[in-house]
């Protein structure tokens, strides 16, 4: 029997439906889970993506890209394969792809997190036979604290820097994390500046009805007491120097580990991730009821072994989500590529 899903050198492929999910080489039909660069690449003939993520994908792709939006939970049909998209809770418009063919159901989660996020629809648990799950933070050392604690920490850090006459430079991925931070911090503490890689995305979020506080342009005055949101790649750039003196911080799940946090270029780390932590991964995979589990990103082999030991048919699947663009030299916190790729290449360049 024809498998519902297989891994090819272009990415995950659905043979009966003849389409790819997040392919990394040009194809005819691509379903895109979300607009991060390791999932959304240029050069495909036709794109299908969640309606909430349409504007973001359009922003990142070439103007000529042919993109079809599909609202969450509505379905479409390619060659008898039923396709629907469901919130993944990762960034605005991020989707899990559910495909159904002859009673077989597969779910490709893309990147996801289970903690609520006021800038995107919450993760929706789905039942399936095969789940393709990300496993970026699939080690028990990664256990996230509630985000309210993290936002408290960030607010305090900002206020303390103000007392010492320092600007607060907070580095975060420009798509998703930056907007989640903006929506969660206390904007009454002071003015907020955003890097030019972030501001256009803020606008897209705002246009999509997400409430974000007012942000300033780098040319505006009053910098001393400000919070500056910038992608990690901007740290060494001349753009940053105008905010001196400043204290730097990086908001990422990788900040959980001291050796990652304690880099000379970064003063502070906030453990805030848009990916599921160890417990989040285990619980969502178990809740899907899937007997077969494919794992992509990060510590996939460890999670696969753990799941096999509790009776699931799990394997690590080699993908290229994290192979390309991996260039440690640009990475201030030494992160594995998945989390950092979106920042290292200008949008829509592939």
């Amino acid at each position: 029997m024809q498998p519902i899903l297989q891994r090819t050198d272009k990415g995950f492929y659905c043979p009966p439906g003849d389409f790819y999910i997040d392919p990394y080489k040009p194809v005819d039909r691509a379903i895109i889970t979300h607009a991060h660069a390791d999932h959304a690449r240029s050069g495909h003939r036709h794109y299908l993506t969640a309606a909430d993520g349409f504007a973001l994908l359009k922003h990142r792709m070439l103007a000529s890209a042919q993109i079809t939006p599909l609202p969450y939970a509505q379905s479409t049909n390619y060659h008898g394969v039923r396709i629907s998209l469901h919130p993944a809770g990762h960034v605005l418009g991020s989707a899990q792809v559910r495909i159904e063919h002859k009673g077989q159901i597969a779910v490709i989660t893309g990147d996801y997190k289970v903690e609520p996020d006021q800038t995107c629809a919450p993760f929706e648990p789905l039942n399936c036979h095969l789940i393709v799950s990300e496993s970026t933070f699939a080690l028990p050392i990664y256990q996230w604290q509630p985000q309210s604690i993290l936002f408290d920490q960030i607010n305090r850090w900002w206020a303390t820097n103000q007392d010492q006459g320092l600007a607060s430079v907070l580095m975060a991925y420009s798509l998703g994390k930056a907007q989640r931070l903006l929506a969660g911090i206390d904007p009454t503490i002071g003015p907020i500046y955003c890097h030019s890689a972030i501001e256009p995305i803020n606008q897209i979020y705002r246009d999509s009805g997400i409430d974000l506080p007012q942000t300033l342009r780098a040319t505006d005055p009053q910098r001393a007491r400000s919070l500056v949101l910038a992608p990690p790649s901007a740290l060494a750039s001349p753009w940053m120097s105008r905010f001196r003196p400043f204290s730097t911080a990086f908001a990422s799940g990788w900040m959980a580990v001291r050796s990652k946090r304690n880099r000379p270029s970064v003063d502070t780390g906030f453990v805030l991730s848009d990916h599921a932590d160890w417990n989040g991964l285990i619980s969502s995979i178990k809740a899907s009821g899937a007997q077969e589990v494919w794992l992509t990103h990060g510590y996939s082999t460890a999670l696969a072994r753990y799941l096999r030991e509790i009776g699931l048919d799990a394997k690590s699947v080699d993908t290229r989500f994290r192979d390309e663009s991996s260039s440690a030299g640009h990475d201030p916190a030494g992160n594995p590529p998945d989390s950092i790729i979106p920042e290292l290449k200008p949008a829509g360049e592939q």
Partner: peptide, 19 residues
Amino acid sequence: LFEESYQAVGDLAETVALL
């Protein structure tokens, strides 16, 4: 899995604290 975690952290006390 403890040992895998230790590999990722590189410090015993920290590995235990985190997991």
